[in-house]
């Protein structure tokens, strides 16, 4: 009894504060649940709305036809092909350059002020609005390098846009590789290049691939810079990547969403479903690649 007395005194002294902390904790938990519920609800409402509008228009004919002024005959084949062509070129350009830049920054560059400045600048570049890259692309690729308003110019512009994102993601992935990994390689007599190429890079690969594919999804969803550098809206033929006119999915969607007729809103929604599907495929690809590459990694 004597031993219990001080304990209960302690309880009563701390009880009010305990209640308050419990209430605060519950409130915070509630706020977190509410935040995620709000996000999910918004997403669900948007998706349901888009799918309901798109359902009557989504069919094979829509996927395999050129656009048309008559919504019933309209399709998005040129836009899908334009988007895929841009996606491929963007991937081919940004993957090697972005990863090489990240390897330099993490594995080779010394920790000097100039390199820190470089990294800060790359982070800032990732936050520059896409329309600015459009202006740059128009001046450099379309006009100065005389590529004209082509898929190639568009893809290079979008590559510049996502390069900072690819570099940052790759830098983070490389930094996440434990130092013991590098020291182990050196201990076995590896040169720096052998250490990077055979030990660090494979370990960082899942993170790098995720970053690259998510960045490509961003490039594929951009409309603003492409409008500036001369993408067309009504294109009935399949685009040639290095010459000639093109259109892409976001611009096709924008063009249709602008029209007054309800039917165009419907095909606009259908095109949104297609681009969503394309994004999902890309993200799924990122997941699969990640899973495959990290299968053999054990720290």
């Amino acid at each position: 009894m004597a031993a219990l007395a001080p304990a209960s005194r302690t309880d009563s002294r701390f009880e009010p504060a305990l209640m308050r902390r419990k209430v605060t904790g519950t409130l915070f938990y509630g706020a977190c649940v509410a935040a995620i519920a709000l996000l999910l609800l918004t997403l669900i409402v948007l998706l349901v709305d888009v799918f309901v509008r798109a359902a009557p228009w989504l069919d094979l004919q829509f996927l395999t036809s050129p656009p048309s002024s008559r919504p019933a005959r309209a399709g998005i084949l040129p836009a899908i092909v334009g988007t895929l062509e841009i996606g491929i070129i963007v991937g081919v350009v940004t993957f090697p350059i972005g990863v090489a830049a990240a390897i330099y920054l993490v594995e080779y560059a010394s920790d000097s002020w100039i390199n820190r400045l470089l990294q800060t600048n790359i982070s800032n570049l990732a936050g520059v609005p896409s329309i600015i890259y459009g202006i740059l692309g128009l001046a450099v690729f379309v006009r100065a390098l005389a590529m004209g308003p082509t898929i190639l110019a568009a893809a290079l512009t979008l590559s510049l846009l996502i390069l900072p994102v690819v570099i940052i993601a790759s830098v983070e992935a490389l930094k996440a590789v434990p130092h013991a990994q590098r020291e182990g390689a050196y201990a076995l007599g590896a040169s720096r290049w052998q250490m990077v190429s055979r030990s660090v890079l494979p370990a960082a690969a899942p993170g790098i691939m995720t970053g690259v594919i998510l960045a490509m999804a961003r490039a594929i969803g951009e409309a603003a810079p492409l409008i500036l550098i001369g993408a067309f809206t009504f294109v009935t033929f399949l685009p040639n990547p290095i010459s000639g006119q093109y259109t892409v999915l976001p611009i096709q969607i924008y063009g249709w969403a602008n029209r007054p007729q309800d039917d165009f809103q419907g095909i606009s929604a259908a095109a949104i479903v297609v681009i969503l599907a394309l994004m999902l495929i890309l993200n799924a690809l990122a997941l699969i690649v990640r899973a495959r590459l990290s299968r053999h990694i054990q720290w």
Partner: peptide, 13 residues
């Protein structure tokens, strides 16, 4: 322990 070689990475890309 890592068994993935760089060629795998390139091949996947």
């Amino acid at each position: 322990m890592i068994t993935t070689r760089p060629s795998r990475l390139a091949a996947l890309a």
